[in-house]
Design a protein around this nucleic acid. Structure first.
Lengths: 193, 193
DNA sequence: AAAGTTCTTGAACGATCATTCAAATAGGGC
DNA sequence: GCCCTATTTGAATGATCGTTCAAGAACTTT
């Protein structure tokens, strides 16, 4: 038995960057070859086809983002504070120059949802899990006494997620730090009220 | 002199539907031929190329949406009420089955912004004009005494636009009427507070 | 009604795409 | 150290893409 020579995680991270830069359809196998360092045959051997590479890259992206999210809460005893810092982190991400400011999940969902049910289902499940994780933090914050029980955690989680979607789209045409920070501040204030 | 035989506006509306269904890149000239009824040569004669057709379709889309927006305020003496009805209309649009629930401007911006500066500029200007129109209605509502002057109309306009972006994206994974209506209700309450 | 000009038609073009495959290469088991 | 098997390689393939263009059709003018 001979094992593959490449680092699968590194390849997937390179592929997700390529897909983020140009979108799935416009990213050619040549682009992917250059980005990942893998020849077409190797990609087909490891991921079946271009679409398989996208699915694997999406899963890796979700894993990375999930880990990143959790990191905001491991050394914090205030869930509310963690959520606020997380939101500030997203704003910073929107302000960064590179194209990673978009979310691969929503980007791929917008591009492929209507023509690929499997991609649609996979991404929907991952976005649902992300929303559930956020909702869970709101419930924690309520337990910790930092947020009132007047509105449910589910309600707040949905609104927070909607706000992040909106912020990301808004940042496409208004990448000004002050504007985005002010919007995020207001969003957080409203979602905690 | 012989005039063209086709109805330009009807062709552009058909083209925008095609672009909304599959996205710009994945909409082939064959798709456009079928959608518009125009043969490739005629499209190139009238719009120079596929990209020219997209630009014209985007402008037509913007025109249609602008007219639609204005209609919510012509027979109303309450700008606040008009904005609320407009938001409800957007929610209904998100809930409709067809693919027109997405916005062609944001969809095209997401797909093409990073590789086509002219598309990026055109769409940004139109989104900016849309936001300015909304901001103007908030200023009117303040003049009419229905909304306080505590926060500026610009601030409220930005937040409202951000919320609509978020609602549209959220609807992709959660097309449930009750959820969306509740989110929109909360959004309107927050933006008017 | 005939001529002239413009629009329409759709086959043909080169380019590029995702994908395949047979040859070359290199590690694991004996 | 040698064979076997799995991986890597990259040129070749067929399909599809946007685009072009020459011929035919139709409207306008005289």
């Amino acid at each position: 038995m001979r094992s593959a020579e490449f680092d699968k995680v590194a390849v997937l991270r390179a592929a997700m960057q390529a897909f983020l830069n140009k979108g799935y359809t416009k990213t050619s196998m040549q682009d992917l070859k250059q980005a990942t360092g893998l020849h077409p045959g190797s990609i087909y051997c490891a991921f079946e086809n271009k679409r398989g590479l996208l699915l694997a890259a999406i899963s890796q992206y979700n894993q990375d983002r999930s880990d990143e999210f959790c990191a905001f809460f491991i050394n914090s005893d205030s869930s509310k504070q963690g959520l606020e810092t997380y939101l500030e982190h997203i704003v910073e991400e929107c302000l960064s120059c590179d194209t990673s400011k978009a979310c691969l999940l929503t980007k791929a969902l917008n591009e492929l949802a209507e023509q690929d049910d499997e991609v649609q289902t996979l991404i929907s499940q991952q976005l649902e899990a992300w929303q559930a994780a956020i909702t869970n933090k709101f419930a924690r914050a309520q337990d910790e006494g930092d947020i009132s029980d007047e509105r449910s955690a589910e309600c707040r989680g949905r609104y927070f997620v909607m706000g992040i979607y909106g912020l990301r789209t808004f940042a496409n045409t208004h990448p000004e730090p002050d504007t985005l920070k002010k919007l995020a501040k207001q969003l957080f204030q409203d979602v905690c009220a």
